[in-house]
């Protein structure tokens, strides 16, 4: 068994210019260059991308679902952030 395993990388692909990079999946690679090449070979075989980002998974900091209450629920009642909160007469058609 190998002493050291290839680390895990997360792959983000831009499908076409104008769109954002989207998380496509992950893979293993020994270094960044290999991660990029592997991502090209694994995730864009069917013409899925025009740009790739790879980042080693350990560099991603994720929020903890048990904090979801304090992190995300406070935003739920701030309805004034949405346009539908404001009432306008029908004559003002597009605003």
């Amino acid at each position: 068994m190998s002493k050291k395993n290839w680390p895990l990388w997360e792959v983000f692909v831009r499908s076409k210019n104008g769109l954002e990079h989207r998380h496509f999946g992950s893979l293993h690679a020994a270094d960044a260059e290999m991660a990029l090449e592997n991502a090209r070979d694994v995730y864009t075989r069917r013409n899925e991308g025009v740009s790739i980002w790879v980042v080693e998974s350990k560099h991603i900091t994720a929020s903890n679902p048990s904090d979801n209450g304090e992190l995300f629920e406070p935003a739920q009642d701030k309805v004034y952030r949405h346009p539908t909160f404001y009432e306008l007469p029908n004559e003002v058609k597009h605003m």
């Binding site: 893979l27 290999m34 090449e37 070979d41 694994v42």
Partner: peptide, 11 residues
């Protein structure tokens, strides 16, 4: 030696 290299060589 790895799934990733298998896929690359096939390409």
């Amino acid at each position: 030696p790895s799934l990733e290299t298998d896929i690359a060589l096939t390409n």
